[in-house]
Amino acid sequence: MAVLKFRAYYEEDEAVYRDVVIKHSQSFFDLHNAILKSYEFDNKHQATFYRSNDNWQRGREITLEKYDKAYKAEPLIMINTTIGSEIRDTNQKFIYIYDFEKNWTFHIELINVSKEESSKIIYPATSRVEGIGPQQYGTRSLLGKRFVDIEEKYDLPQNNEGFSEEGEETGVENNDESSDDE
């Protein structure tokens, strides 16, 4: 059984990508979930794939469900469409769009085809993570959740060495106090 390796580039930064391995007999729904998991996105929004060419032009649409919009051709449904059925050449490309309001766009490119599957891998799986991916909601620091701990560790008590009273905003505090008295 053929195993396909796709590289899912974040459209806004090609240095950020995830490699996903998946069996050719698995569905686009499986690929959709694997991409979301690899980028740590939730699965709460609409999504669609487009078969694409080398110029990243949108072709046949493969959607999560049929949406309330006009289609040039009847879309394929992810859960019913195997990946192998939509591979036209050895470097097949797809465009993947998630959350139509935020319009997260990924360029998906077939980068390898293997004849043998590994008994150690549960497909689909993420085989490589490169770069810090976008955060679906809000912002993400390089340190993530550990930032607060590090920030607190290096906070110095007021008036310790390295801090002076010069430039403190005591005048502002006095202005606030006088305006409260009025």
Rank of each mutant, 00 (worst) to 15 (best):
K44H: 13
G144T: 04
P124C: 01
S164Q: 06
K102E: 05
Q26C: 04
D13R: 09
Y67P: 01
K145V: 10
F147A: 15
Q57S: 10
A15H: 12
T139L: 14
F28K: 01
K72T: 15
E11K: 07
D89C: 08
I111F: 06
L143A: 10
P75M: 01
N160P: 01
S141G: 15
A73F: 11
E11C: 01
I22W: 04
I111H: 03
Q136A: 04
N53H: 12
D30F: 11
N53T: 01
E161T: 14
F29K: 12
L156N: 05
E61P: 07
T48K: 11
R146Y: 11
Y17N: 07
E11D: 10
Q92P: 06
G138I: 07
S127V: 15
S85Y: 01
R128C: 07
K66P: 02
L36T: 00
I132P: 03
N103W: 10
E177M: 08
L76I: 01
K5S: 15
E130F: 08
I35L: 02
E116S: 14
D13S: 11
A125Y: 09
T48A: 13
N43Q: 03
R128E: 13
I77S: 05
E86R: 07
R128I: 12
Y137H: 14
E11W: 05
F28R: 00
A70E: 14
F106K: 00
N91E: 15
E177L: 12
N91Q: 14
N43V: 03
I132A: 09
L76K: 10
I122R: 15
I108S: 01
G59D: 10
D19W: 05
I150M: 13
E61V: 12
T139Q: 15
T139S: 15
D68T: 09
E168V: 06
D30Q: 10
L143P: 05
Y137P: 02
I150C: 03
F6S: 06
D176A: 13
Y67S: 04
G144Q: 05
A125G: 08
D30V: 00
Q26F: 08
Y67E: 00
S178M: 11
K5N: 12
D149N: 13
A8Y: 11
K44D: 15
K72M: 12
A15D: 14
E117M: 13
E151G: 05
D155F: 11
E117L: 11
